[in-house]
Design a protein around this nucleic acid. Sequence first.
DNA 1: CGCCAGATGGACTACAGGGTCCCATTCTCG
DNA 2: CGAGAATGGGACCCTGTAGTCCATCTGGCG
Lengths: 218, 218
Amino acid sequence: MGDEQVAAPTKQRRISQRGIATRERILEAANRLMLVRGVNATTLDDIREASQTSKSQLYHHFADKQELVRALVRYRGALVLQRERGGLERLRSFSGLVRWRNALVQANALNNGKYGCGLGSMAVELSDQDEQARSMLSETFAAWEKLISDGLHRMRDSGALRQDAEPEKLATGLMAALQGGYLLANAAHDVAPMEVALDMALEHIKSFLSEPPGGSTR
Amino acid sequence: MGDEQVAAPTKQRRISQRGIATRERILEAANRLMLVRGVNATTLDDIREASQTSKSQLYHHFADKQELVRALVRYRGALVLQRERGGLERLRSFSGLVRWRNALVQANALNNGKYGCGLGSMAVELSDQDEQARSMLSETFAAWEKLISDGLHRMRDSGALRQDAEPEKLATGLMAALQGGYLLANAAHDVAPMEVALDMALEHIKSFLSEPPGGSTR
DNA sequence: CGCCAGATGGACTACAGGGTCCCATTCTCG
DNA sequence: CGAGAATGGGACCCTGTAGTCCATCTGGCG
């Protein structure tokens, strides 16, 4: 013992702009390749080539492939949450949810349903093989669901949703429909199942909307 | 042309009982291992050892790993469809759906949500890497959904479901909720999300139940 | 009983892909 | 500018894994 993690006075690692940029290039390439081929089917040589770097760079910035994959989990998680924050943090009405749905469907339609969700596919591939990755992914899903449930809470507080609506459960259901929709769309190479799934979840949420004050049944 | 699948007079490959049993053992082992480790992370040596066979057996019965995987897709598809037929082909009421839901949840709870759906996980892993496997999986999902939608059709015909219910869409939504539920449950190592997702889908179907003739609103 | 095709065991090969190493280049700072 | 650290290139090593091969065994059939 004796080599604890005290910050060595003068020995802290200098990190340059160039180094950061390289690391970013590697992650970006890994992100791109692993989305279409899957994590295990993507080799470090593929990444090296696509990122215009070299083996020594990969191992300079990441201890090994597993660490690179974990970094990618964080990277993708941050990307998705950032994107979703944009679409959800001001959510206050049902029509906002519809717009959010449309954006996801449209994006997926561009690929004819292929590739699925970057987080979902990693979750399937890694959950049974890297406990640390699994737990990060699980937390990311939780954060994503929270963006949704926060919006639903706002809708409930403002009276748009009835008091008996349970935002957390609705958010989990919506997330499951989204992920299942991605999966089926990917298998079918067709967005349709994803649309149907999201519409079901939205319909379900709709059933918790407050009756308009003087509304009739039809 | 010219080499159609006519039974060659004397040269048809004799296939013995023992051979069939070995092939079955291999598939059974592959099924078991690939469910927990994933397809790509499972090696042929793993399978050889688990099935108590040898390399020559693997290559005697399957051209290569890809063919073995495709055979596994068929194998699992047949297993799942057979199991689901048992639970769905006599489906005639909403309570039958609830029983079906409970059986799936209970089975998944035994693993604390781990491993997910054998078909869904293969779909994610293979869809972007083996077109043939993808299309077989897609067909299997379709057949599975049809078992559900057939049941819903029966319910509609018998008047349990309203005429405006769309069995195909309801079945797709239910399947997406199931698959998404499996995925989230696997990531969380907890069945809960799967339950919530299936309950959402069932609640949605419930909203299409016919009003009981003289029923009150509450 | 002897033949033969199918079934089996397992050693062997080829090579892809993860990981190491060493030296060159660039940057930073005194 | 000179020293030393960070960055970079790419050859190389080694293990794991897919795939080959052949000698042997088994069981059905004339």
